[in-house]
Amino acid sequence: MNEGIETGQSEKDLTNKARDTSASIRLVTLSPCHLVTLSLPRAWFYLILLSWQRQARARLTVWFALALLVLSMTIVGLQTARGRWSMDHWRAPRGVGPTFPEVIDCWTVTASTGAASPLAVGINDASLAAFRAVLDQSGFLVFSRFFVFSIFVTFLLPIWSLSFATEAMGSERDSRGLVWLLSRPLPRSAIYLAKFLALLPWSLTLTVGGFGLLCLSAGDAGALAFRLYWPAVIHATLAFSSLFYLMGALFRWSAIVAMVYTFFLEVILGNMPGYMKRISIGFYTRCMMFDAAESYGVHPPEKAGVYLPVASTTAQVILLTATVVLVGVGMAIFAHREYQDEV
């Protein structure tokens, strides 16, 4: 070997041999490693725009999300059309006795026929008026309990957040398109953050917009619910999206893992008494909602000592902190993780 240099040779040998070599060959002059027109922030903002546009590619997901919205609106609309968002059809004793309005009527008749002192009549009338007022305002309470807490927060909110958040990273991994992003001179953590920011408009539009439409279908009760609950919906969407997006970066079958999380942690553990439910996002969402609607008589389903709710501000801080922490963890993981099968 005339010009070969073995890897194991000392630095001095390498230098000497290289000098010998330089006498016989023309030394390479590298083209300068500068690309003056390139701007990292510009590339990053463009990535946000691109990712936002490419989310629309998941047409099936969008269509099914909308179909789910229409189905839910059908359920709410039918209830509204029949005036079921109130306690008017509730019976005492439950299921067998007269309806609440019938009880009031009966009470009114009884009160008017009996001879009583003016004070007693006054108290009776006041009680009746209070009872009627509660009955008139009961629509919001019934809608909150039987739709917002049981269906929207438990099922619709996670499933809508899941659909876009897992798709954001999952579709890139599935289609092996990640290679194009990872070949660009953008820090990996910045790529992760950009894609997260790009999915938020979609998720927020669907969850907050969807919630708005559902509330619209519920009439006055829904209007009040939207006015009180939209901040909780936004906070929950941020937390859910950051969690499911992180799952997309971590797991190959992120949508399935997210679904397991939704049904185990949110549906089962999230509704258990005690502290266990505090690991679920739905719990803090509900706490924000309970606090917002406290003056309308909306309370946790169990006694405070059993449900152990947290204050609205605490819930808000926890949800926002969870979002930031989950995104931060995701950025750190994405920055260090190799996607061997996807590039």
């Binding site: 998941a58 099936l60 997901t61 099914f64 999300a65 179909a67 789910l68 189905l71 839910s72 059908t74 359920i75 039918l78 209830q79 029949r82 079921r84 269906i151 099922f155 499933i159 899941l162 659909s163 897992t166 798709e167 999952g170 079958w253 949508a255 399935i256 679904m259």
Partner: peptide, 26 residues
Amino acid sequence: TVPLIMVWTTMFFMMRPLSNTLVDGL
């Protein structure tokens, strides 16, 4: 996966409240 999950969960989860609304509620 994601569209399949949406259809599948709707079939299992959302049809129950809808049918309950129609029969028990309305």
